[in-house]
């Protein structure tokens, strides 16, 4: 009977947030050890491994996030050819890097960078650390610079909130901690490097399968939309641009498609949440922005 109560209690503690994890686990294992369910050595072992999970997730440094992001972006680009247009890439990066300055996390290890993918599907991906990829199909949902700013701000929001890293199965991080715990030096030996690379491969796979196939949890998408509203407002863009993009997306999406139709909440659901957040009026003076937007998008 004691097992039925105490073991689930410990497992429950394994699922709570990092901040309180160590203390809660110590309390839980202490209780289990005191009541004889587990012995002192087992309790210590559980404490150590839980502590490793908590610390290792926090300890994905911006440097490691950068290496994860590079490989996630390269993996996505291996399935989606880049759209090689110097003018488009320059415009997208000027707009995107401008917007990134207004996020709560303007500085990442290698900075924010943007690229168009040559695909008619409606897609946009934010790889950790700030590698942001937007498809031609997504650009076609944008009729104004405001709308495109909305798309980029949403993706910056995913980076700012570490949504990509959170898609990594926690067991990978425990495995990495185990390997790294044996060796503090920079240069791992052949076997350890091979094991760490396997963990890295699995982590990349967790992120790419989430962003390309299953999609983030709905709450992450709404959080990224909320972050986008903040970024857009600070940057002088109307967040209504994001709403108009979603209205156009609703018309362009093909039911059953392997793009935003599959990975994101329905546009009308996002619009409903967004309209609760938007209070700023649409800026009147948009002519100059529209001219440069139309100029860049011509021929897309």
């Amino acid at each position: 009977m004691k097992y039925l109560i105490i073991i689930p209690a410990i497992l429950g503690m394994l699922l709570v947030g990092c901040a309180t994890l160590d203390k809660l686990t110590e309390a839980g294992t202490g209780l289990a050890a005191a009541t004889g369910v587990i012995n002192a050595d087992q309790a210590q072992s559980i404490n150590k491994s839980v502590s490793a999970v908590g610390k290792v997730f926090e300890s994905i440094t911006p440097e490691q996030e950068y290496y994860i992001g590079r490989t996630v972006a390269a993996t996505i680009l291996s399935k989606n050819k880049p759209y090689d247009s110097r003018a488009m890439t320059a415009y997208l990066n000027t707009l995107g890097q401008y917007l990134s300055l207004f996020s709560d996390r303007p500085e990442t290890f290698g900075g924010y960078h943007f690229l168009v993918m040559d695909s008619p599907d409606i897609n946009a991906f934010a790889a950790p650390g700030g590698f942001i990829l937007v498809s031609r199909g997504m650009l076609r949902c944008c009729k104004t610079e405001e709308a495109l700013a909305g798309v980029l701000a949403h993706e910056i929001g995913h980076v700012e909130l570490n949504h990509g890293l959170q898609a990594i199965d926690k067991s990978r991080l425990t495995a990495a901690a185990t390997i790294l715990g044996t060796e503090a030096a920079k240069n791992l030996g052949g076997k350890d490097l091979a094991e760490l690379t396997k963990t890295f491969e699995n982590s990349i796979s967790d992120i790419t399968s989430t962003v390309m196939n299953s999609g983030y949890a709905r709450k992450f998408e709404f959080q990224a939309d909320k972050a986008a509203v903040t970024i857009l407002t600070r940057a002088g863009y109307s967040p209504n641009g994001l709403v108009s993009m979603l209205q156009q997306m609703e018309k362009n999406l093909k039911p059953g498609g392997h793009d935003f139709a599959k990975t994101h909440p329905a546009p009308q659901d996002r619009i409903a949440e967004l309209t609760k957040l938007i209070t700023t009026p649409h800026p009147a003076d948009t002519a100059a922005r529209q001219a440069r937007f139309d100029d860049t998008m011509r021929g897309l």
Partner: peptide, 16 residues
């Protein structure tokens, strides 16, 4: 403390 270059780094990327 965080040790620069530890964990997922250029060596891991090269191996990948």
């Amino acid at each position: 403390m965080a040790l620069a270059g530890k964990g997922f780094n250029s060596d891991v990327e090269s191996q990948f």
